[in-house]
Simulated scan of single mutants.
Amino acid sequence: MDLDSVRTFAAAADAGQFQQAAAELGVTQQAVSKRIATLERSLGVRLFTRTARGAELTIDGQAFLPHARELLRVAERAAASVRPGRRPLRVDVIASRVAPSGLMRDFHRAHPEIDLDVVMLFDIETAVAAIRSGAIDASFRAVAVPGRPLPEDIESVRVLDEPLQLLTGPAHALAGARSVTLGQLAGHRIWMPGIVPGTEWAAYYADAAAEFGLTIEATGPNFGSDALLDTIADTPALATFMGERTRLVWPAGHGLRRIPVTDPTPVYPHSLLWHRDNPHPALPALRTHLAAAAGGHGAAGTWTPGWVIPR
């Protein structure tokens, strides 16, 4: 199986658009289409369906995606086994469209000479275990969960406080507001499917709900960002929180609104975690880049839970 085709398939699946995948891979959109067509012929199935939004995985594409990722991981491990001291810097960014992913893209543009391997792990326990085992070099997390401090051998530095915005459909009661206060959100339903108990983001939103009297609902399965945007656009009674740096694309007819939240502004505290004895030569460059580019934290008029490490 041609690994370039597999890598292109994974990139297109993450991006949701062939054009964006081409930009990230540094090839033409025609090359992306040709590689995926070659892969589809070799497998004998369709992997994508073209839509007005871009490209969506078929059922076969969804089934193949985890195996494609494993193929790429195996190929990387095989190459690294005969490339002493040359393993790519491996960083966990949680998801492809959130702020840490953007920070890593900026780092790659600033340091194209550094090989990167970006992965997406589920929760902080999984990420910390991977850091301690050497499977990854660093992870972006909210640092801690109440009652579960970081192990002593894990270092962290807070690199970005990302403001949360309220995302509403055009018929929502607050859709016309230029900004909203946390007090104004009391009594409004904020729908966030996919919040998993025990994760750092679940702890964050539980504290926000308790402190400001918010109604945050995590009911229903998480069908992904497109399904969430469709529901918010069509349901006047629902809104959701979204990070200011989260990349979203929706059909023009949705009429969605991204509204700043103030008084105070809730910010999600992204920190970089790594093992104190990690020897990867590119890790100091990443830390220096983030210190210079990501900005400070703890600004006046912002809010984070009390358990967030202030450093």
Rank of each mutant, 00 (worst) to 15 (best):
A208K: 10
S139R: 04
D106W: 11
A282Q: 03
A95C: 07
A142V: 07
I59A: 13
T304S: 09
A186S: 12
D2F: 09
A186P: 07
L43N: 00
R83V: 08
Y204I: 06
T288C: 00
R105E: 06
V249A: 05
T304M: 03
E155S: 08
A127Q: 15
A186H: 08
T246R: 07
A294G: 12
L3F: 07
A202P: 02
D60A: 06
S96H: 13
Y205M: 13
D226S: 08
P281N: 07
A210E: 12
L166H: 02
P310I: 07
A282V: 01
R86Q: 15
F241L: 00
V27R: 03
E155G: 08
S81Q: 11
L103H: 12
W307G: 14
A63T: 10
S156A: 14
D92C: 05
T51M: 05
V308A: 05
T51I: 03
G147D: 09
G224M: 01
L103R: 14
I94A: 01
V128C: 03
P112Y: 04
P305S: 10
A208E: 15
G16F: 03
I190N: 01
T240W: 06
G102V: 04
H172F: 01
D153F: 02
P281F: 06
L286S: 01
T231F: 13
A130T: 13
L167S: 07
D226K: 10
I94K: 00
R73F: 11
A239H: 08
L229F: 13
D115N: 11
A206I: 14
R257D: 01
V74H: 07
R77S: 14
R247F: 10
V45I: 09
V145T: 11
P264K: 14
A299C: 10
H188E: 13
I309A: 14
W274A: 07
H280T: 13
G296T: 12
G147A: 05
G44L: 03
A252Q: 01
E244F: 15
T219Y: 00
T215A: 06
R41M: 15
R53S: 14
R276L: 14
Y205E: 13
G61L: 08
A55W: 12
M242T: 08
A22M: 02
G253F: 03
L273A: 01
A52I: 13
R257W: 04
Q62V: 00
R311H: 15
D115G: 15
L150Q: 03
I114H: 08
R69S: 09
E113V: 06
H111D: 11
I94V: 05
A22D: 05
D161Y: 12
L3G: 05
A233W: 13
G176Q: 09
R83H: 13
A252C: 00
P66T: 05
A142K: 04
D60C: 00
L273H: 03
